[in-house]
């Protein structure tokens, strides 16, 4: 649900988390991103930085400049002035990501976790089973069967938090218990209903089932698609995973290595919230690919 009143939750001496609702819903993400923009435009006193995510936003503030109570008052005012997301139309780039599902590297990572931390079922088989899919091959079809919305960046430099835009591709799974201490660079995985690409080898808690060789952060700025940023994505981008086999994966990886890889991105489309909602409303959500 979307709350009537946002919830303000303290995080120690320098953070407040603002929760707009408790589901995965594009409107909630627009509220979080909208509040972040409003704070930036308003230059709210004492705010050091913000981190909007799917249904909430974290504010980092400096208590010597604004008290917790005054900050909450300021933020309530800004939220009250946010318009409805209904009429938003925004430029949205679409990236095609060559991805090898059911790849040997994430399989090795899962086996390593099972051997060293705690035994667990092979992630793709597990996610397929708990979502009532026939097998991991149907999981691949469902997971790669939708565009994903980049709701935010976080966890690790450049990591995109992704929401499936087609409700027929909405699946869910728990996160690791306990989390992994490492994950291969470029791993594609999911937790809850969120998907992500791991930019580099990092710890992590998502279920794993694919890997992409396409770089999503570029410390040395070798690839044109990054422009003047070292992270590829920005909120409001979309991603479509394109399934590739090992030979295609190796080819892309070689191009990334020698610097000749060109990101497959289209930039002529606008995302209309109204059109999207109308389209979602027209679907039979019980269908599965």
């Amino acid at each position: 649900m979307i709350y009537d009143e946002p919830r303000f939750l303290p995080g120690g001496d320098r953070y407040v988390l603002i929760e707009f609702g408790n589901e995965m819903n594009l409107e909630l993400n627009f509220l979080a991103q909208g509040l972040a923009s409003a704070i930036a435009q308003n230059k709210t006193k004492g705010v050091v930085e913000t981190a909007p995510c799917f249904a909430s936003m974290l504010v980092h503030y400096e208590a010597d400049q604004i008290s917790y109570a005054d900050l909450v008052k300021e933020l309530r005012g800004l939220i009250g002035n946010l318009g409805s997301p209904e009429n938003i139309e925004l430029d949205s780039r679409l990236f095609y990501f060559e991805t090898m599902y059911l790849d040997p590297w994430t399989k090795a990572c899962i086996e390593d976790y099972s051997a060293k931390i705690t035994p667990k079922e092979y992630d793709p088989a597990f996610v397929a089973r708990i979502n009532g899919l026939k097998d991991e091959h149907q999981l691949v079809r469902v997971h790669s069967g939708t565009e994903y919305w980049v709701a935010s960046l976080g966890f690790w430099p450049g990591l995109p938090f992704l929401m499936p835009l087609d409700p027929r591709a909405m699946i869910t799974c728990p996160k690791y218990n306990p989390p992994r201490t490492w994950t291969p660079q470029g791993t594609v995985g999911m937790g809850g209903s969120a998907s992500a690409i791991y930019p580099v080898a990092t710890p992590g808690g998502y279920q794993l089932f694919g890997r992409t060789p396409v770089p999503i952060w570029d410390y040395e700025r070798r690839f044109e698609a990054f422009g003047d940023s070292i992270v590829l994505f920005r909120p409001g981008d979309r991603i479509k995973f394109v399934t590739v086999d090992k030979a295609q994966y190796d080819d892309v990886e070689a191009r990334v290595k020698d610097g000749s890889y060109i990101h497959n991105m289209v930039g002529y489309q606008k995302f209309s919230v109204k059109n999207y909602k109308a389209w979602v409303g027209s679907l039979d959500r019980s269908q599965r690919f």
Binding site: G11, Y15, N22, M24, C53, C173, P174, K175, G191, G192
Partner: peptide, 20 residues
Amino acid sequence: APEHGNFPSNIIDQGYPLGA
């Protein structure tokens, strides 16, 4: 809601305070 993930400590991804 199922999109949190079904383990009790799972929540829809959110910003983390440093020190959390």
